[in-house]
């Protein structure tokens, strides 16, 4: 034993340092050690319903050559836009802007209808942003379809998708419990208006309201086609819109969903506005000459309680002529 006190102090100091380092190692090790090397997935977020209580089960069909006027007429019949959108609301508008086509090819929602919806919401005192995650180059789609001009001149704002806007969200109960979607815009908004157009679709027969929510998804969505009808019904569960404005001013009757030739398009001169996605999609399917039982997702959606196929079961159903 060395009785030197210096030595003892040094011993204690060195032992203390070594113990500290060991303890630090152990702490870091236990903090980061994980037997399960599969990274923990982020929990899927829930999108609330955008439906205004008390407005369920409504649909108004307005026929007329001026689609913007028809939208106004239908909204009037529903009790005015004020019933759905209040001052200070943040309204997200989702048109169909999936392809980089000029508007008259019918592959995208007409600028007239989209612009009118934006104008109505702004007149009601809301802030309006328009979003879509198209198949083609986003800016190109908005510019070429005329929606960019229509939205901006109506006082709205186009929100181009970017990677930062996406997150995993809960979708439906049939095929896709959760998926990458434009979460941030959906979280920003407290009202959501779908403005689909009437198109034939190579796989689901028709592309209308519920199929239009596909444009809110990201990720490997090209896999969804393997069970498209179930996925479309899931999309109906995913979004409960404040309002749907189905643009039937012209109908893409062939070569859907892209179209590409004027001969694929017919004038439709009709819009359907309401809150029942299934009823509106049934109406749209009829415009394209499909009976409701030919379109599998309508039945699936009705069974899920998303709406009714039979117009007679709606709380409010009216047809108006909109000729100025």
């Amino acid at each position: 034993m060395n009785p030197d006190p210096h030595h003892r102090r040094m011993f204690i100091r060195r032992m203390g340092t070594a113990t500290g380092v060991a303890a630090g190692t152990a702490a870091i090790g236990s903090l980061f050690h994980n037997r399960n090397l599969v990274p923990a997935g982020e929990e899927a977020k829930t999108i609330p319903s955008f439906l205004v209580p008390g407005t369920e089960g409504m649909m108004v069909v307005a026929e007329g050559p001026d689609p913007a006027f028809a939208v106004r007429a239908a909204l009037q019949e529903l009790g005015g836009i004020g019933r759905f959108v209040k001052a200070g609301d943040r309204v997200l508008v989702k048109p169909n802007c999936a392809f980089d086509r000029p508007a008259h090819f019918g592959a995208t929602t007409s600028p007239a209808v989209t612009g009118e919806v934006v104008r109505q919401c702004i007149a009601a005192g809301a802030e309006v942003r328009v979003i879509d995650n198209p198949i083609n180059h986003p800016e190109g789609c908005f510019v070429k379809s005329g929606l960019m001009d229509a939205v901006q001149s109506a006082g709205g704002e186009v929100w181009l998708p970017s990677a930062a806007l996406f997150a995993r969200v809960k979708v439906g109960s049939l095929r896709i419990p959760d998926w990458e979607a434009l979460y941030r815009p959906l979280a920003w908004a407290n009202k959501l208006i779908g403005v689909p157009t009437v198109k034939s679709h190579n796989l689901s027969g028709v592309s209308l309201t519920m199929k239009n929510w596909y444009g809110l998804l990201g990720g490997p969505r090209n896999r969804l086609h393997q069970a498209l009808h179930e996925v479309v019904a899931d999309l109906g569960q995913f979004i409960r819109p404040t309002l749907v404005v189905l643009d039937g001013s012209r109908l893409l009757v062939a070569n859907g969903p892209t179209g590409g030739s004027p001969s694929d398009v017919r004038p439709g001169d009709v819009v359907a506005v309401g809150t029942d996605q299934v009823a509106i999609d049934t109406f749209g399917a009829r415009l394209l000459g499909h009976a409701p039982d030919e379109i599998a997702f309508l039945d699936l959606a009705a069974k899920l309680g998303l709406g009714v196929v039979d117009e007679a079961q709606l709380k409010l159903f009216r047809k108006v002529r909109a000729v100025s």
Binding site: F99, A254, S261
Partner: peptide
């Protein structure tokens, strides 16, 4: 190809084909 080889429907290629008729 999914339909040809795995018996699953897909047809994404037809859906996105931009020419008319496809």
């Amino acid at each position: 190809c999914l339909p040809w080889s795995f018996g699953r429907n897909c047809m994404v290629c037809e859906e996105v084909c931009p020419v008319s008729p496809k």
